[in-house]
């Protein structure tokens, strides 16, 4: 049996990581600004809400990123695991949805602790489908965790900002290149890597039979996109990712329904919602780029208000990801000094 004993107190670390991740996103990114760590939720008071999307797929909302669950006769596939403190509640809801089927796969959309914090607990609760002369040992070690290789690299790295994750939380199976796939519960599930978007390890998860896309934080509808420049995120990668989502989605009729979209954070969406968001992000990128071509400084660009017509819906003046930080991330990743 694999040694899953944490070298450090990972659950506590995950909470810290939740604070740190967002702080890191902004802290590394915008060093000149005073950083404000997001307040941690009181996990005892958080309840998990389950939403049936369509086909085999559900969305679970609690604290942290949305969790996608695909359940069927083969078992359960989970996309992202929120915070470690949410694991028991999430697992209880997954057991209810699936009728107690074991978790076979955990897929990670990216490295942030509000999406991978429960990895270790989920893995232990699951059981992989394995054959061979060491099958029992491997199966007993839990579910498979699949992610882009950059997720594993970053979770393993001690870089002075994020502690390394314990082995039990790490992806057990990584990929490089454009995509990888699994076939489970009667449908193909594709993991599509989107380079340099929210981070450098993002994947979109496309459930081809259920017709659902789980986007991770490439698409959220709660605010401006978070661009973790310290981990390879860029504005153009975000826009490319949003357009990739639109390549995958097909509305049922009158630009509504059809392929459903589970965002990294926020409400259930469809293509039209992603179009609205893609348009907004693209227009702001174009404006900042135009201002840069005119030789405007970052301060001048911020003062010109390239986002002001969208701030009422997506902006923030306080918290871990402010409008200023977003504009700065756009500016920096377009080559601004």
């Amino acid at each position: 049996m694999a040694n899953l004993t944490p070298r450090i107190n990972w659950p506590r670390l995950a909470v810290l990581g939740a604070t740190l991740t967002t702080a890191l996103v902004s802290g590394v990114l915008v060093t000149a600004q005073a950083q404000q760590a997001p307040p941690l939720p009181n996990f005892d008071q958080v309840t998990v809400r389950a939403f049936k999307i369509q086909g085999n797929v559900w969305m679970l909302a609690g604290a942290g990123g949305n969790v996608t669950v695909q359940a069927g006769d083969d078992g359960v596939l989970v996309v992202d695991t929120q915070f470690a403190q949410m694991a028991d509640k999430l697992l209880a809801e997954i057991a209810r949805i699936s009728g107690g089927k074991p978790i076979r796969y955990v897929l990670n959309t990216h490295v942030h602790p509000d999406h991978v914090g429960g990895n270790e607990r989920f893995r232990r609760a699951g059981r992989a489908i394995i054959a061979g002369n060491v099958a029992q040992d491997i199966a007993d070690s839990g579910a498979e965790i699949i992610a882009h290789e950059n997720v594993q690299t970053r979770m393993s790295r001690v870089d002075g900002t994020t502690p390394a994750a314990p082995s039990g939380a790490l992806p057990t199976d990584t990929f490089f290149g454009e995509s990888t796939e699994v076939y489970v519960n009667g449908e193909a599930v594709r993991l599509i890597h989107q380079p340099a978007a929210h981070t450098d390890g993002d994947v979109l998860v496309h459930f081809r039979g259920s017709d659902v896309v789980a986007t991770g934080d490439i698409y959220t509808n709660t605010g401006y996109p978070v661009i973790d420049t310290a981990r390879g995120g860029t504005i153009n990668g975000i826009i490319a990712g949003l357009n990739r989502i639109l390549d995958l989605t097909v509305p049922k009729d009158k630009q509504e329904g059809g392929t459903m979209v589970i965002p990294g954070h926020g409400r259930i969406a469809d293509e039209a919602d992603v179009v609205e968001y893609r348009d907004m992000v693209t227009i702001i990128r174009d404006r900042v780029q135009q201002m840069m071509k005119k030789g405007m400084t970052l301060a001048q660009i911020k003062a010109a208000g390239p986002t002001s017509d969208y701030d009422g819906r997506y902006g923030a003046t306080t918290g871990f990801w402010t409008t200023d930080q977003f504009v700065e991330a756009v500016y920096r990743t377009l080559g601004g000094k």
Binding site: R49, F51, M59, A61, K254, Q255, E256, M260, G266, R267, I268, A269, D270, A272, D273
Partner: peptide, 9 residues
């Protein structure tokens, strides 16, 4: 419905 349910035209 919940605020997390889909929005429609």
């Amino acid at each position: 419905p919940s605020e997390l349910e889909p929005h429609t035209w």
